Computed example of a mutant assay.
Amino acid sequence: MALEQLYALGALNHMGELTKLGRRMAELPVDPMLSKMILASEKYKCTEEILSIAAMLSVNNSIFYRPKDKIVHADTARVNFFVPGGDHLTLLNVYNQWVETGYSTQWCFENFIQHRSMKRARDVREQLEGLMERVEIEMTTCNGDSVAIRKAITAGFFYHTVKLGKGGHYKTVKQQQTVLVHPNSCLFEDHPRWLIYLNWFSLLKSL
């Protein structure tokens, strides 16, 4: 399965040997799909945005928190970050807003966001940015163009595509497994026809 995925991503040729793209992907110490997404950002000129998304994905499950005595407030704060296009873009929105506050601890507290997780994401982003010269990628920005960002994401995660079936359930295109949209996803009530996910239970992006 792993070799098949690497071949699909273009990292291996039909002989099982590393391609030029595969060698560039190997320079980045992240999951192959994330690596392909980052490299694809060069084509779509959205490296700044994709690096932020990749960094946020590294701490994705520990960004928001819900104190038992403030669940409604915490859920409202999370929803306020939702943007059209899916959870990847929502994570980017969170990171950009935090940057605009000067990496404020107080802002995190007010928005029920783990400051420690955001600091870790910033560290990961800085490390990835430091590797861009090694893979010969110039830092570019698409100024928030969601189409360019989603194309770069899809270039890396196309292997994780699901389609909404007639019965109202999502099934993976590859293996026809039924998967669920996580209740915390901004797409939970939208039911777009196509999605790209990170894992079986957390569907992340509308195409």
Rank of each mutant, 00 (worst) to 15 (best):
R125V: 03
G102K: 01
D87F: 04
M139R: 10
N96H: 05
P67V: 14
T140C: 10
M139Y: 04
M139S: 11
D87E: 10
D123F: 11
E133P: 00
W98A: 01
F81V: 10
T105F: 12
A74M: 04
D87G: 07
E110T: 04
G144S: 06
I71H: 01
R116Y: 13
T76P: 00
E100F: 09
K70F: 13
H73C: 07
A148H: 03
W107S: 01
G144V: 06
S62P: 01
V124I: 09
L128F: 06
N93Q: 08
V135R: 05
A148Y: 01
V147M: 05
G86T: 04
N93V: 01
E136R: 13
H115V: 10
E126W: 02
V99T: 06
D145C: 02
L128N: 01
K68S: 15
E129P: 00
G130F: 07
V79A: 13
T105L: 10
A148W: 00
E129R: 03
A74T: 03
V79I: 14
D123L: 10
D75E: 15
Q114Y: 14
A148V: 02
S62E: 14
T141A: 14
W98V: 00
G102V: 01
L57R: 08
H88Y: 13
V72S: 08
L91M: 12
G85F: 04
I71E: 12
E100C: 07
I71Q: 10
G85N: 04
D69S: 15
R116F: 14
I149K: 03
C108H: 01
L91P: 08
P84V: 07
S146N: 09
C108P: 00
N96D: 10
F109R: 12
F81Y: 11
D69E: 15
A121S: 07
I63Q: 05
P67Q: 12
L89Q: 02
T141R: 10
W107C: 01
E126S: 08
E129Q: 05
D145F: 07
P84L: 09
K119P: 00
L128P: 00
N96Y: 05
C142V: 05
E138R: 07
K68T: 15
C142F: 06
N111L: 10
Y95Q: 07
H73G: 02
S104G: 12
I113Q: 03
V72R: 07
V83Q: 04
N61P: 01
D145W: 09
S104V: 08
I63N: 02
E138L: 09
Q106D: 15
V135S: 13
E133W: 02
E138K: 09
V79G: 00
Q114F: 14
H88W: 03
N111S: 12
D69Y: 14
A77E: 06
T76C: 07
P84K: 11
W98K: 00
A77Y: 12
E129Y: 04
E110V: 04
